Amino acid sequence: MTAVEKRNGELIAARTRCEHCPLRQREHFRDFDPDELDFVSQFKTGELTADAGASILVEGAHSAHLFTVLAGWAFRYKILEDGRRQILNFVMPGDLIGLQGSLMGEMQHSVEALTAVTLCVFERGRLRTLFEKYPDLAYDLTWIAAREERILDEHLLSIGRRSALERAGYLLAFLNRRARACGLVEHGKILPISQQHLADTLGLSLVHTNKTLRKLADRKLLHWRERGCEVLDEDGLCELAGWVDPVTRGRPFI
């Protein structure tokens, strides 16, 4: 049983039917054919909600479920014995979590809700059916895993070789671009991250992060608000970081 299940109780029946999934309405995601949609609808066993700050999966835990984020933000992280935390990546609608634990027996990182999150829940035991009968969906899982590897490659490059200013510029441009594709920064919404979250992702102290963000704000690239960050010039951040985002259309999700 995951931390979310312990905190929120039994799985609830799916409130969002797969055929009416809001993610299918966004051009960023590829659509299912009728047979795939029927399988995914049966694969989904229910939904879970998690409040901001709730642990969704914990390092070392075993879970009988996989999750796709339907709404909200979360983040993957590892933590050292002395409490130092490294945020590995942020999770947004359409992202799959728990695959590592399903295939390797236990989670090697933890996942925490950054905002209130709604998760579609899938039974791990039905993964074999997906691979046996739905090769396109199986390929989608491979694509998702390869994409996560590519993202982590870029994050590692940033931490290892970019300056603090370049690191922050890259991360904020990356998050804003992903959030736009998912509809998370529309209608005046901002990136719901704290400076501590950024510091733990960038591998910088909180003081250094604060100074770096002020430099970006002075260049009119972002505006820091009480509850997060508004990116004012995404292209400017990309140019500063020397980052070109590969164009992705028809991104798969389960």
Rank of each mutant, 00 (worst) to 15 (best):
C120V: 01
D218I: 00
T2Y: 02
V121K: 00
I87Q: 01
L213Y: 08
A54K: 08
H28D: 09
Q196R: 15
M107F: 09
L137I: 09
G203M: 08
C120Y: 03
D153T: 13
D31M: 11
V185N: 03
F253R: 07
V247L: 14
L171N: 04
D95Y: 02
L202H: 05
L171T: 00
E27V: 02
V4F: 00
S205F: 05
V111I: 14
L202W: 03
E154N: 02
V244K: 11
R162A: 00
L191Y: 06
G250V: 00
C238M: 14
V244D: 10
R84A: 05
G160S: 14
R128P: 04
R85H: 11
T45L: 10
I56E: 06
L156T: 15
F29D: 06
L237F: 08
A181R: 13
S102F: 08
T248F: 14
T68R: 12
D51H: 13
S194R: 09
R26T: 02
K189R: 15
G94C: 07
A50L: 07
L202S: 07
D235W: 09
V231H: 03
I144R: 07
A145G: 06
G250F: 04
I12K: 15
E226Q: 15
R178A: 07
R162P: 03
L232P: 09
W143V: 00
V121C: 14
L232W: 12
L37K: 03
H20T: 15
L99R: 04
A14N: 07
L191R: 05
L137K: 01
H65I: 05
F90H: 06
D235T: 14
C238Q: 14
L80N: 14
G228C: 09
A50Y: 03
A54W: 07
T212W: 01
A71H: 10
A217M: 14
H155V: 05
A217P: 05
I87Y: 07
L137T: 06
D38N: 12
M1Y: 11
L216H: 06
R124L: 10
D51P: 03
T142V: 09
R180S: 12
T248W: 13
Q196A: 13
R128I: 15
L114G: 02
H109S: 13
C238H: 10
E149C: 10
T248L: 15
D200K: 05
V247D: 08
S205E: 11
A199R: 08
N210L: 10
W73K: 06
G105Q: 12
L202P: 05
I97A: 01
C229H: 06
F29Y: 10
V69A: 08
V58M: 11
K133M: 12
V117L: 10
T212S: 08
